[in-house]
Design a protein around this nucleic acid. Structure first.
Lengths: 329, 329
DNA sequence: GGCATACTGGCAAACGCTTTCCAGGAGGTG
DNA sequence: CACCTCCTGGAAAGCGTTTGCCAGTATGCC
């Protein structure tokens, strides 16, 4: 194990000089010494001990990222964006997956805080439960009290820097677009009632329908994943002409079930989702949705956190009509 | 910033005792002292400084994972498996994405080595370039010399513990299955020639065809991603009745292009891929493929690395025929 | 030439924790 | 009762870096 001291000795300089040469310092080191140190480091194969560096500096170059599920393309895209931004600033990313368990999320914040990561990013919808939110907030406060930065992608209810997708507005715009195709009788695959993202999208969609004078949609609750969409189809009212799933993976599940049941989309029924995950374009029919710049949201969150700004950055969604939704005949 | 010393002082015990109580030690601490320390830690909100711990212990509890692209479901699945296994053993995972740049891969190994991570996992196909492999090996050797563990998912050519999917055999089995459906004229969307995974699957497939007495397939090279499959279709020989893409995402790209061109799968042409990524089941038609237990491969790699075993674990692929491949009429 | 002003290099004190070694007391044995 | 052993708590020496401070030298200016 080669240490800085070995390098210094070999180069015939002090520890301080070696440190200044090898690990970015504001102080200048003379040409001669610099060369000697660099040569020694190369010959010995010196590698900085980041743990020691972190300890001495009191600051690490690691960012913590907490997502619900890395296999979900939604989080994969956010994580990818976050990692790009992090890499650009010379940081590594440590990832934790909660599998949608709020306790696990809190535990990860605690672990990452112990790791003294420079920043923690929380991605994914929060649940509407004051007890859980309270515990999470306390954990985050403690982390921030020790100098950590926090940013979230999702709702602004943790009092931290947030990249907040316009769920309500996006869903409303989608409602308008779908109504524009002539649809009046809608169903909303609304996900779990306590999930705020789901609730917001549902609310935005329903409110806009009301504003347009359409009858209230059928509302079907269920899990926020593929299976949630899949099972929701069972209870679908046959008079509905257009289904809005509050996220894409639910829409994908719904499409699967519809196909099995012989319902042809979009001939018999129009379907739309939300998020615009990458896999959508390969479905048949391609799914209509509200596009969110997921990777960019991840990057922005990293930048926000690293800059220490506690802003709330709204992100607009863009309605993308594809074949899965068609004009009502 | 609460340190262990603060806790010790508050509890009226020595640093040593506090350490033994709070951060797992083999030594016993008396009931009274133990309680006092725990109470003090709780009151003060003590959080271990992992950097200091790592430095003092000379060993960290972080695992490094290097993948090509986290958005690719193949790597997402492996990463997920790896993270599960890591979490089970109380480790965190630090991720780096190379975007298929070998230099970036080497750089990540170096960075992770500086982080003194307990183990490094390399996932994804290697390129057949002695210069690059050599540099990577040197970097890995250096890392291992400093006590690090390494495991890889893919080919066994780094001299490290490896979870090795049976690419040749899987492709051969697939060839047999497809030939069993009556196909004789095949095309192989073979990916880049220098990518070993791609080459192995191609070779296994072609060899089996030869053994079965089928004519040699048309071979179309291209990128190892969706676009590679997409563009390959342009040069497809019209006499071909069945296309084998060396991985699923290429097959997905091929399906997209075929659809655009009005070629109906499987009526006009059969298609198969390799890997069985999760998104396949939602395609129309569902894609035939060779299933690899991706998450399990990730977990196994972590276990291997953590156990310090340098075994090569073969993983068999299982042919899964779905609608995209049908009996030739 | 004399003096103030950069520069540059080195010493040594942190950073927060683990662990070896030591001492003292409790308990067991002959 | 003397002697050993076992157990528990504490003191202190690291672990590998960074960085504030000091000293010595070179530079610039009058």
């Amino acid at each position: 194990m080669i240490t800085l001291e070995d390098v210094a000795r070999r180069a015939g300089v002090s520890l301080a000089t070696a440190s200044r040469v090898l690990n970015g310092s504001t102080r200048q080191v003379g040409e001669t010494m610099r060369r000697r140190v660099e040569a020694a480091a190369a010959e010995l194969g010196y590698r900085t001990n980041v743990a020691a560096q972190t300890l001495a500096r009191g600051a690490s170059n690691v960012i913590g990222l907490v997502v619900h599920d890395l296999v979900d393309p939604y989080f994969a895209a956010i994580a990818d964006g976050a990692m790009r931004a992090a890499a650009e600033q010379g940081h590594m990313v440590m990832v934790g997956t909660t599998y949608r368990d709020p306790d696990r999320e809190i535990a990860y914040v605690s672990t990452l805080s112990a790791q003294r990561v420079r920043a923690v990013l929380l991605a994914g919808s929060r649940v509407d439960d004051p007890a859980i939110t309270g515990r999470l907030r306390r954990e985050l406060d403690r982390y921030r009290a020790s100098g950590g930065q926090v940013a979230s992608v999702g709702q602004d209810l943790l009092g931290v820097a947030t990249v907040a997708p316009a769920n309500r507005e996006g869903a409303a715009a989608l409602a308008r677009a779908l109504a524009g195709l002539g649809h009046r009788r809608f169903a909303v695959l609304a996900g779990p009632a306590h999930l705020i993202t789901a609730a917001d999208r549902h609310a935005g969609f329903a409110a806009e329908l009301a504003a347009l004078g359409a009858p209230p949609p059928q509302v079907i609750h269920g899990p926020f994943d593929r299976n949630g969409g899949y099972t929701a189809i069972e209870t679908l009212d046959p008079r509905v002409t257009c289904v809005f799933a509050v996220n894409d993976v639910m829409a994908v599940g719904a499409l699967a079930r519809l196909r099995e049941r012989g319902v042809v989309v979009p001939d018999d029924l129009s379907v739309a989702g939300f998020d615009d995950i990458a896999t959508l374009r390969d479905l048949t029919p391609p799914l209509s949705t509200v596009r969110l710049p997921l990777a960019e949201m991840g990057s922005r969150a990293v930048e926000l956190a690293l800059a220490g700004e506690s802003a709330v950055i709204p992100v607009a969604g863009e309605v993308v009509l594809r074949e899965s939704a068609r004009k009502l005949r």
